[in-house]
Write a protein that binds this DNA or RNA. Structure first.
Lengths: 367, 367
DNA sequence: AAAAATTATGCAATCGATTGCATTGTTTGA
DNA sequence: TCAAACAATGCAATCGATTGCATAATTTTT
């Protein structure tokens, strides 16, 4: 630790006050009871607006509680009632635009409905994912939202949760075989439409840079691509799996060029591999989009800012978060109501920009 | 809700299994006690490795606990002991690259040390910030990390926390007058060095696009800029406050051009205002960096991807998160140890790229 | 005016884990 | 051999809020 300090930063100890950070003991309903010459039961009931408590008393209690800054101890409360007010979310990584927007949306709903949200990262690792779930269970969250890691090729850990009766909502990357609620994008449709768009622009040799197809989203994008190209005659196409990083996108397309294969359109399952492809194209001095059109996936912020701006697919991240949270809270609060898994499918939006606008068509119109 | 559904997405109810989501009752130490013909006390002590319990019994208990899948109820536990295992974090917005990296770093440390992390957004609003703090307090978190909102121009809500003895760590945007631990960037130094860099490149008419100066980070960047330009003769400079958005950056610089003021360098307190400035410059067909050099602040992902790539300042977001979490946990676990506020200052890193490389110098070397 | 119904509150148990103190063996020491 | 020391466990109270079941006080009904 110290040598690290030495290299990267320094510490200053400011000498201001001294007695800080001694947690004060909080006021309890018993304290209130004593003050008002009543019992804890009465206080509790008054604060919970119990019908059997007189209006007068309620007023009195509320006023006093306010006055002395009483706060209900949620820990004690949830021990007694068995109901908690925190939810959990497991994501591969927080620091990605898509995910952080999902979280932002979920957090807003949670806040509005009086829940707190605990976030865990699986860091794209199955074991960490298991661990995160254990941690959340341990913290006694009332329900869990999860988007599985890229390495999660099994469902058992989630099945365990289901057996234990933990309310569960999957989103984005899901295990479709599980009987849980889920909130997803219509990846098939998005890929289909994007492909159709490229075909409409006159492209006839398409390459799809896909991801690992055991992950539902990549599989669906792939299917959408295939179905779209299959509907048209005289289309040549190729699919490259597991090419979702910038490096991989660069490499794959570079190799194609080297063996003299020049597709006139690329649909990537990730903005980053699209970017990699774009860089090769630029190096080769190909005109984008006229010689090669490029479409990414995810609408990362950079796609609108680079040159040429990149057509991409907006995944409604914020809405996914909102819906996942709503669904989860609904399940938590009405354990018996929704017995059948609900699936919410959002329609992603194709953001057409310069990298695919060959015809004198519409370009990015700021939403 | 329904018309919204109609527009944007549809729902499918899949009809798979029926009985899902009935929380099973968990096993308690009392259950274990019954099974092993012991008391709850013994079980508790055995699991906590109490010295007065025989090795034999401990083994027995552990094995049985494992076997039946017992998990300690943290709610009950923390009610009794008064110690919790969750920490809270309040940030302006989650869906920003800087913030989400801070969270990622903090989450990792929390996980490693056995804590959960509750995240709240203030959405750049003072009232929401207050609310978030209330919520966290209510959830009985053991400590709080906070980066204040842009509208927070008072300290009282934080002072209240301090008085109540809640362990507090401020980071990035802070109220420096408060006696709390904090983790920040050396914004002064970063701005100073960036300015110096521009001067070294031969620039002599510099504009600083600053933010609202009552926020510490902008004030310090401003001071760094001023001090750097002041050390050199024959430098002309201007400072524009509250110009941190892309739109504002665009507008401000455009206006300057219109009245025929052509700075040869811009140091922005935000990558977005720098981008706005860059767009104007491009429209005016100015050569970047030769006619106008541009430096942003925050090293947003897009800065490396646009053309020309933008020099910016990396803020060590992940490390800030890690350090804030470490500091907080240390405070929480040793309430009496650190009585004096500690300040950790990280040194940001100037990422020199094309937008400011006039001389045949070094450009971005991938970290 | 007594019985019945209603209203407002108190009592005490409970949620699950923890912990100071008491209790039961068992061992050591003199 | 008996007290003292020790080891291993049990008992019961506690953390703070909730809640079913009294109980007391007041009002209504007959």
């Amino acid at each position: 630790m110290h040598n690290f300090f030495y290299f990267c930063y320094y510490i200053i100890i400011t000498q201001l006050e001294t007695r800080i950070f001694d947690m004060k003991k909080k006021i309890t309903i018993h304290d209130l009871a004593k003050m008002l010459n009543m019992t804890a039961s009465t206080i509790s009931r008054a604060l919970n607006d119990h019908p059997k408590i007189s209006q007068e008393t309620k007023e009195l209690v509320r006023k006093k509680a306010e006055e002395v800054g009483y706060k209900r101890n949620l820990i004690a409360s949830s021990l007694r009632t068995g109901k908690g007010t925190t939810l959990g979310m497991v994501v591969p990584r927080i620091n990605r635009d898509f995910i952080s927007n999902v979280i932002a949306g979920a957090e807003r709903i949670c806040r509005e409905k009086g829940y707190s949200l605990i976030i865990c990262q699986s860091e794209e690792d199955l074991e960490r994912e298991r661990e995160a779930l254990r941690t959340l269970l341990h913290s006694r969250v009332s329900g869990i939202m999860i988007s599985i890691s890229a390495k999660t090729n099994t469902s058992e850990h989630l099945e365990t949760l289901i057996k234990e009766g933990v309310p569960l909502v999957q989103f984005d990357r899901i295990r479709p075989e599980l009987p849980t609620h889920c909130v997803v994008n219509d990846n098939y449709r998005a890929a289909y439409e994007a492909t159709q768009h490229l075909i409409d622009q006159g492209c006839r040799y398409l390459v799809h840079l896909s991801g690992p197809r055991y992950i539902n989203i990549y599989e669906e994008r792939c299917r959408g691509f295939i179905d779209a190209v299959s509907r048209v005659q005289n289309i040549r196409y190729e699919i490259v799996e597991s090419a979702i990083t910038r490096e991989k996108g660069y490499e794959v397309i570079k190799q194609m060029f080297e063996i003299n294969r020049y597709p006139d359109a690329i649909l990537a399952a990730s903005d980053y591999s699209a970017l990699g492809a774009m860089l090769v194209a630029k190096e080769k001095r190909l005109m984008i989009p006229h010689q090669i059109a490029i479409v990414g996936f995810a609408n990362e912020p950079f796609t609108a800012l680079i040159n040429p701006s990149m057509t991409s697919i907006d995944q409604k991240a914020y809405e996914i978060g909102e819906n996942a949270a709503k669904l989860l809270i609904d399940t938590v609060e009405n354990p018996s109501k929704i017995k059948k898994p609900t699936k919410i499918v959002l329609i992603p939006q194709l953001m057409i920009r310069e990298s695919s606008t060959i015809q004198n068509g519409l370009s990015d119109k700021k939403n």
